Simulated assay, not measured.
Amino acid sequence: MIALYWALVAVMVVGIVGAIVPGIPGIGLILAAVVVWGFVKGFAAVSVALPVAIAVFVVSIGVDFLATYWGAKKAGASHWGQIGAIVGFVLGFLGFLPTVPIGGPIGIIIGILLGPLLGAIVGEFLYRKDLLLAVKAGMGIVVGSVLGNLLQAIFAIATVGIFLYTTVPTATGS
């Protein structure tokens, strides 16, 4: 039982990383680990951690959208820039960016980081025909996304901390 507990904590650590790094499951992974522990030990064991994890999961979805929107709005980006950022993310994740000749996980991470920026710039440029405005809008979208990811990381760390605080004594028999 203790091995399962620490394996779930390891999954939660991956969830913390995923809250920061796009393309890796984040807070949803933490929520899933809490639910698994609830099934194993009974949901009374996660009576504090589960509602916190659910609330943080819902809030993190909102943070994702609002941070990107805020960054885009502050930089004056249009919907074309936002759509371009999404397309750029998908292309970067799939490794279709010509600027990413490196394959494997490193290439995917680079593509995930560069894709939204390049996509936002291309989308804005197609809409406005002004490269300077397009770059400014692209940077705004990326800055908003990064700030949102950092906020999600703080939420993820807090959620795992609450889980550990409320479950370690019963999981380890202390």
Rank of each mutant, 00 (worst) to 15 (best):
A55W: 04
V13D: 10
A10Q: 05
L97F: 07
I108F: 03
G26R: 06
V40S: 02
I54L: 09
G138N: 03
G81A: 15
V87P: 12
Y5Q: 05
I157Q: 05
F65L: 15
L113N: 05
V46R: 01
G38W: 02
G92F: 03
G173T: 03
G18S: 06
S78P: 15
A33I: 04
G144E: 08
A156Y: 02
G111V: 05
K136F: 03
G28E: 05
L132Y: 13
V160A: 07
I102V: 15
Q82Y: 12
I27A: 04
A45H: 02
I24Q: 06
T166W: 00
V11I: 14
L66A: 15
M139S: 12
L113K: 08
F39P: 14
T159G: 05
I61N: 12
A153I: 07
L114C: 04
W70G: 13
I106N: 09
V143M: 06
A171V: 10
A49I: 12
F93A: 13
L117R: 04
P98S: 10
Y165P: 07
G161M: 02
S145W: 09
T99V: 15
T159F: 00
G104F: 00
I27E: 06
G107A: 03
G95L: 06
L164C: 08
A134R: 01
V87G: 13
G76S: 11
L117G: 09
F163P: 13
S47E: 10
V48A: 05
G140Q: 07
V35G: 00
G88A: 10
